[in-house]
Design a protein around this nucleic acid. Structure first.
Length: 164
DNA sequence: CGGTTTTGACCGGCGC
DNA sequence: GCGCCGGTCAAAACCG
């Protein structure tokens, strides 16, 4: 977790040259899920139920593109996964207070695993983007010590437009 | 019939 | 090594 570089947030910059940028950290350095510094990112709702955890202490370095809206039954998430260069392994986690397990984030996902993690009564679910060849994965699990929250962790960047 | 979920097996890294 | 642990595979079941 030594060196981090800024990255553009808008998806239109996906083809920019990121070749000099590297991230030398692992998720576990930051997201042990014990001592996460969750940051409230959704101030638009009356109840502040969306949080984001990331590896950045210097927030000015990275512009997260995240957009959350809520209708009666769903919480919609967009952005947040469109900010990375293809081969860069970078993860970001969202923590959302909701009864709904799988949030609508504009993509179709195929579940490929489910695990019980130690010291947690809740299972962790593994999803991969349904689009052929797209490397994006996400994990969904309930917060260990506040099960009202769902933690969604994204890894990688989509190689295609939203939906499909 | 095609895509998705389910679920135990499998695998690789790591600590002892 | 060996066993634990987290992540993935894959075959069968499931479902529109």
């Amino acid at each position: 977790m030594t060196e981090r570089n800024p990255v553009a947030a808008n998806s239109s910059s996906l083809d920019s040259d990121f070749s000099n940028q590297q991230w030398s950290f692992e998720l576990s350095d930051y997201l042990s899920f014990d001592d996460i510094d969750w940051q409230q990112i959704d101030l638009t709702t009356d109840q502040s139920f969306v949080y984001q955890a990331n590896e950045v202490s210097d927030e000015s370095n990275i512009e997260w593109s995240s957009n959350h809206t809520r209708d009666t039954n769903n919480i919609h998430m967009s952005g947040g996964v469109n900010i990375w260069k293809k081969e860069v392994k970078k993860r970001v986690a969202f923590k959302t207070m909701t009864e709904i397990e799988v949030l609508d984030d504009g993509y179709r996902w195929r579940k490929y695993g489910k695990k019980m993690v130690k010291n947690s009564p809740n299972p962790r679910n593994y999803y991969r983007c349904s689009v052929e060849g797209c490397p994006v994965k996400k994990r969904v699990e309930r917060d260990n010590d506040d099960s009202r929250y769902v933690i969604t962790t994204y890894e990688g960047m989509h190689t295609h437009p939203t939906s499909s």
